[in-house]
């Protein structure tokens, strides 16, 4: 497949989710920017939220992602299925950390 072909497929795949991608981008950028104005970095101390919410998101994603695709955890069958599900869940957990870590930092520094 050509590079242009890959981009076209990615574009059409993203189309229904542009609103969600935008919301997630804002939810990521706003706390990051606000916290960095108060000298936040990824190595800064977070808080309870950034400690417990990301693992909770990973756990929830594990069950909810298959449901979101109109499937169920019972149909996660092959090693590729498991790798994909684990990868997506960890990815969402990491995203939650990126959002909540700066929020907790700002709360602590008040």
């Amino acid at each position: 497949m050509t590079f242009s072909g890959i981009l076209t497929v990615v574009w059409y795949s993203a189309l229904p989710w542009l609103w969600l991608i935008s919301v997630m981008l804002v939810a990521f950028l706003v706390p990051q920017l606000l916290a960095r104005m108060k000298s936040y970095s990824f190595t800064s101390k977070g808080g309870m939220g950034s400690k417990y919410i990301p693992p909770l998101v990973v756990l929830l994603a594990f069950f909810l992602v298959p449901l979101q695709t109109q499937s169920s955890l019972a149909y996660v069958n092959t090693w590729v299925d498991w790798m994909n599900l684990i990868g997506v869940s960890i990815g969402l957990g990491f995203y939650a950390w990126l959002v909540f870590h700066p929020i907790c930092f700002m709360r602590n520094s008040k």
Binding site: G5, Y12, T69
Partner: peptide, 24 residues
């Protein structure tokens, strides 16, 4: 496989549209 289901449900329509455009 669940992955194949997701491909069918989420990925094949975008691939089809790319095919119509002659990109793949």
């Amino acid at each position: 496989s669940w992955t194949v289901w997701v491909m069918k449900e989420r990925m094949l329509r975008p691939a089809y549209y790319a095919m119509l455009e002659g990109k793949i």
